[in-house]
Write a protein that binds this DNA or RNA. Structure first.
Lengths: 230, 230, 230, 230
DNA sequence: GATGAATGAGGCTTCATTCAT
DNA sequence: TATGAATGAAGCCTCATTCAT
């Protein structure tokens, strides 16, 4: 008899709206009114579903991580037991715009006809899309000052870095990579990826369009002693 | 007889205060009152010297660039005509904490007895210092949304990237580096450097302490085909 | 077959919850959400049973009066036709903590094994208990501004004062008391009782613990010329 | 050269306005906008002079205490070394409306031609005036829930009670009063005074107009064994 | 140059209340 | 009866900025 709950959907709706607004105005500049407007809801309802502006931000991070994780898993699963390819896919999952060469994004993600995916593409919510990148930057900046964000952001980055370190370790074991400190290498590569994000959002044009993934991959391979062939 | 103008000193004082505040609270979180308090001035006076909060931010960027440029020039001048060493110094100027090996910070900067320098060190205003790094991140985030900041930030980054590209080009000419697209390589390395900044400010601990410069250097050398010796 | 109405029980449940919340946060500070939480109900249900927050407050007053009245009647009935003893009981009914000497609270109230009464005692809903006292103060404050509350509060106080005035009048008729203006005396004593309430709630400790009833009784007796024996 | 500070005047102006508003709407019902309007200032300016709504309330209490203290001192100083008269004046200072008999308010306060005093009278800011009484009640209610207010309110009441206890003690020493526990008696009388306040504000009419001071005095004298002559 | 009062826009949040289910 | 989503009106407070002195 009670009205069926639509909380999950509403929350996602609000989180998505927050992402759009953050991409345009930054976190501090994103007002609840903006978010409500973008979600076509009332301010009151936004606060009915979230206690805090901060809680929304944290959920944005979660969503970013979730989306990212899905894209990453999809790619990595197609390259199991081949660390060099996994490395490519890892970088590509972060930096490749749809349609780049290396391995191509998994069909399930970028070519499906699902209208939701189309909309996501249009709205740049895919990882590597402009909205997501700007959100990463905004959250990173907020992490500098807000301990709670720092914690969550740090955890997310650490998880990714650890995944990467695992790839490096397996590559070393297989004789594909040469690396004395996989953890350090992974962190450096992660930094390069995030730095590319940041640069693209903050100083568009500095990194020539389309060259990002390729260049970072080259750096990573160079770092891991794979570049012999280049 | 009018009192002698102290405007320049005041402006610097305010800019420095703004840096401290930004490092602690971010740009949006930095109120004029905070800045005035940090500078031990009154709110009114801050607005007497700057029309805008934005103008202060732009001056912070200028100051960052100026300081940075000085440190960079000092280092590069000691390595003229040796691109590989210049590359090391370039990276080191950004990422090295005082006391790292490569060439050591120029005397004029880090061992001088000047009390002002001491204070700068203490307050981390030196490039690579925590305050400066956090300011870079904050300004980068602001650049995402504020065109004026984006312009200035982009110009600063472009200038640095161009310097780096010059080093790469000379290295290629000398046969020290192998690189088909110096501009792309320079941008990628620049991204790695800034990414390391960001990571250190937003997710401290992910990059093992002290490994940053070394790792980025290794990536850069790998990218430029110099890693043969490793 | 409709389910049997539980409205009365629910209303009482809500009123009791409101009392607890008011005792802790005051009337203005008591939100419907607080009340619902305290009653372990949903917000919507609270508004199903009460149109208004104000209506709940008025019911709290009713409940206070009812409980009070019962305790008072129980005491007074054991002292019929003896105004001095009635006076003692009147004051005691308001101010005595359980266990004081004068006549002792009627058995039916404080020694019964009824679990409901135990709970009431634990929760301080008994007259003189902390929750009830704080509610009186809160309602009194609200009465200052809200006409409807003022009316109800005034009526309740007037009724009590009138009861007291009756005692005084009978005492004067019996020769036990000396008093030219029973109404004024009753009002003054009522004021002393309520003032003791207020003081205990707002500035705990000012009135030495346990001395309240005794002292007010002494004042009343002094006022009524009964103090000869002291 | 700096603009001369008018902070003290402004703060008093705001505090007075708050008193008026509280008397009409209670503390919770008093919005900053109301206060600003009553003071004919802007909301921003109110917050420029006070951090908090709470801070204003605390200052209202201070002002109440200050005013009260002045009236009390003025009265008491005319009755030095005569505890029974001091007692009368103490009660009168709290409860007497201007123009009552006992000793009459000191000239300096109530008959001066000072326009400020006239205005105070008109606005009921004098102790015992309706505004002040309502403020006492409102603050007392707020003290129930807000520790900071409770502290301040408790301190104020304790100070008054202590003054009263001193009078009682001296009276006992002089043989004017009979009282085993001056502290308890003082607290009880204080309670009676405050209760009369509360009753007058919350249930106007219960206490017959003009009888308050007389009745409380009679109670107090009864309590202190002075009533022999009545 | 310097001070500090003053302004006013607007942000976040809370909450009583209404409604669809 | 009961649930919980939804609304909208305020409220408190913050702040950049302006100005009188």
């Amino acid at each position: 008899m009670p009205r069926p709950s639509n909380t999950q959907a509403r929350r996602l709706q609000i989180v998505r709206a927050m992402m759009d607004v953050i991409a345009e105005r930054g976190y501090a500049g994103a007002t609840i009114a903006d978010v409500a407007r973008a979600a076509r809801l009332t301010r009151g309802l936004v606060h009915y579903h979230f206690t805090d502006k901060l809680e929304i931000l944290l959920c944005v991070l979660d969503e970013l991580v979730r989306t990212h994780g899905m894209a990453l898993d999809a790619r990595l699963s197609s390259a199991r037991n081949n660390p060099p390819r996994e490395l490519r896919h890892f970088i590509d999952a972060h930096l490749a715009l749809p349609g780049r060469g290396v391995a191509g994004p998994p069909k399930m993600f970028f070519s499906g006809p699902s209208p939701e995916v189309r909309k996501a593409l249009r709205a740049n919510w895919i990882p590597g899309g402009a909205v997501a990148v700007k959100c990463w930057v905004a959250i990173g900046a907020e992490a500098v000052r807000e301990p709670e964000v720092r914690r969550a952001y740090g955890a997310a980055v650490r998880r990714l870095t650890e995944t990467l370190a695992g790839i490096v370790r397996r590559g070393v074991a297989d004789g594909d990579f040469v690396c004395a400190q996989p953890a350090v290498a992974a962190a450096a590569i992660m930094g390069a990826i995030l730095g590319t994000f940041a640069l693209d959002a903050s100083a568009p044009g500095v990194i020539p369009r389309g060259s990002a993934a390729e260049a970072v991959l080259a750096m990573a391979e160079g770092l891991l002693g794979t570049g012999g062939g280049r």
